[in-house]
Design a protein around this nucleic acid. Structure first.
Length: 575
RNA sequence: CGGGGUGUGGCGCAACGGCUAGCGCGCAUGGUUUGGGACCAUGAGGUCGGAGGUUCAAAUCCUCUCACCCCGACCA
């Protein structure tokens, strides 16, 4: 490709709206262009990168036994009613109405469509296992697109669906996919961590995310440097045992409940300070509105509520903090709320209330708290579950060491769905005994654009992008200096031709620009190998080679240059 | 949805009631240059996001509205 003909210009300054490194660099390099919030065009050089990523993914999916197919974007809304998932997806779904007033969804994902297909074409256990995938556009009306390609409303995704006879077979495919994903990231030069995850609107029981550690990431994950436990904070567990040095063991014997005056002491910190006890010995009350109903949440004072876990426990779709008014309307005294004697309100407790004793809690009376509250002696709850939020420094649930936390970009998510979708859509098969059973499903997704952006996020410098050779838009940047010298120009043309003929992907900078402009563009575009031909190098019948990642240059003889370049590229790929 | 911010040639910005809306980058033409974003000359390109209002006069003030960005909520 000749740079002079390449559609899309590089620019010195990034558009004002871009903040993250990948957003700025991809725009400046002329690889993407925004048309609306979370909606982007890929220009030729950006599209080349995307297609390379796509091919890597396709190869790994095929290798793992996947069959590629193509499912429709337009999906009858009835399918979503059938699965019931139109509720959990809610406003995230884009819908259109056809001329017959029939409602269609622009597919945010394809479990329904694929399960419907399985319903028709899978009849026997002999048809299983089945792994099918596609690479195509998804539509999601995200409340807030952000960070360029990091979160968008229209995006290309690889989604693979597995159908199995039972859980054990699903586990096997799940392992296989997990390995395929690791191969993909490795080939893209992207270090990732696999973490336990919440399955969100997709549903299902077990899921893992592949995370690229990056400050610009939207997700927070915790990990244990000691035993390797790692999880998205939405999912992460912590050990809630109270450390011995915090509360002496003699204080653990249940004591009689006692009301004490605590004027003006409302928050956990105030009450704990006022009474001289650690927050671990208090109970915190938090109020939520879940699908329109007030929920009383009790959790030990040193912990915080994890809303994702709470949502899962309640199996609700809408969840938000209650306002002070909404709480007061039920007769609860804000600041002195108590699970003791509560009536008519659903009470959800974190299991931390079973770890500890003689708690301080509100007395549901202005200016008073109870001392020595003990569960279940003094109060009852409707549900006890783990609904605590993990933090940096909390104890690891597996080995009790201190957990660390970091932000990350989710570049892949795999789910064990189980049978809830296949049951609803009738994707069942006859087993060896002639018994009809729902297929056990798994689904596995990678957002290609986000993967591309994540590569840029973790592989760039102040000059521009540093593409790994495997996904670079071009392998070689051929830089011609001194267009005005006919000898150099014709030598460059020859080299360009020779490289192209050898099947090397080369971007030939034949523009009439100064050397600085060309070198800077080469760096901005992030092309791995730069070749420079100038009167200086031609004098020695040679061409200068420089890797994007290195400072040093080397001279290559012009004779049979494509073979030498090929060798350099092969060596680089092998590393 | 809550909070904050921004809308002026393709991009980055200035002008903040008053003459023909400026500057840099980019673009076009000609010339001089050429190893890390060269220079000179000439030129093209703008209904100042939109609607309404105030005023002798609005890019500038007011009201409404739309779009985009950031933080949060939310979110595979």
């Amino acid at each position: 490709m000749r740079f002079s003909k390449l559609f899309g210009k590089t620019s010195r300054e990034a558009p004002a709206e871009a903040e993250s490194a990948s957003h700025q660099l991809l725009l400046r390099a002329g690889m993407i262009a925004q048309i609306a919030a979370g909606i982007y065009s890929y220009l030729p050089s950006g599209w080349r990168v995307l297609r390379k990523i796509e091919n890597i993914i396709r190869e790994e999916m095929d290798k793992a036994g996947g069959q590629e197919l193509m499912l429709p974007v337009l999906q009858p809304f009835e399918l979503w009613q059938q699965s019931g998932r139109y509720v959990s997806f809610g406003q995230t779904m884009f819908t259109v109405t056809d001329r017959k007033e029939h409602k269609l969804a622009l597919g945010p994902t394809h479990e329904e469509v694929i399960a419907d297909l399985a319903h028709r074409y899978v009849q026997s256990y002999r048809d299983l296992p089945l792994l099918v995938y596609q690479i195509q556009t998804k539509f999601r009306d995200e409340p807030r697109p952000r960070g360029g390609l990091l979160r968008v409303r229209e995006f290309i995704m690889k989604d693979l669906y597995s159908f199995d006879v039972d859980e054990a077979a699903l586990d096997e495919n799940y392992r296989k996919m997990s390995q395929a994903y690791q191969n993909i990231y490795a080939r893209c030069g992207l270090p990732t961590s696999i973490v336990e995850a919440d399955s969100g609107a997709i549903g299902g029981k077990e899921s893992h995310e592949f995370m690229v550690i990056a400050e610009t990431g939207e997700d927070e994950m915790v990990f244990c440097p000691h035993c390797g436990y790692s999880a998205n904070v939405e999912k992460a567990q912590i050990s809630k045992a109270i450390k011995k040095d915090v509360i002496a063991s003699e204080a653990k014997q249940p004591l009689p409940l006692e009301e004490i005056a605590t004027p003006e002491q409302k928050t956990i910190e105030e009450v704990a300070d006022f009474l001289g006890v650690p927050p671990e010995q208090t109970l915190k009350a938090v109020f939520y509105i879940a699908d329109g109903k007030l929920i009383f949440v009790v959790i030990r004072g040193d912990l915080e509520v994890n809303e994702t876990k709470l949502r899962n426990t309640l199996k609700c779709t809408e969840l938000r903090l209650a306002t002070e008014d909404e709480v007061q309307q039920t007769g609860i005294v804000v600041g002195f709320a108590s699970p003791i004697g509560i009536k008519g309100t659903k009470v959800i407790a974190d299991d931390s209330i079973t770890m500890g004793s003689n708690f301080i809690t509100g007395a549901n009376r202005q200016g008073y708290h109870f001392k020595n509250a003990n569960y279940p002696r003094d109060f009852q709850v409707d549900i006890t579950a783990d609904i605590a939020l993990a933090h940096h420094g909390d104890s690891c649930p597996k080995c009790d060491s201190n957990l660390s936390s970091t932000r990350g970009i989710e570049v892949g998510h795999i789910f064990k769905l189980g049978t809830f979708i296949s049951e609803k859509l009738g994707a069942s098969f006859l087993d060896q005994d002639g018994v009809s059973r729902p297929a056990v499903m798994g689904c596995y997704g990678i957002g290609l654009g986000r993967l591309l952006a994540a590569i840029v996020e973790q592989s760039h410098d102040d000059k521009g992008i540093i593409w790994p050779l495997s996904v670079a838009p071009y392998q070689v940047y051929l830089c011609l200096l001194h267009l005005d010298s006919p000898e150099v120009a014709s030598a460059a043309e020859k080299v360009y031709q020779e490289l192209e003929d050898a099947g090397i992907e080369v971007l030939f900078d034949d523009r009439d620009e100064s050397p600085g402009v060309k070198f800077n563009d080469a760096d901005l575009l992030g092309i791995p190998l730069r070749l420079t031909l100038s009167p200086r190098t031609l004098q020695n019948q040679s061409i200068e080679a420089k890797w994007r990642t290195e400072k040093e240059t080397q001279l290559l003889p012009l004779e049979n240059v494509s073979a030498k370049v090929n060798k350099l590229l092969r060596e680089k790929l092998a590393r």
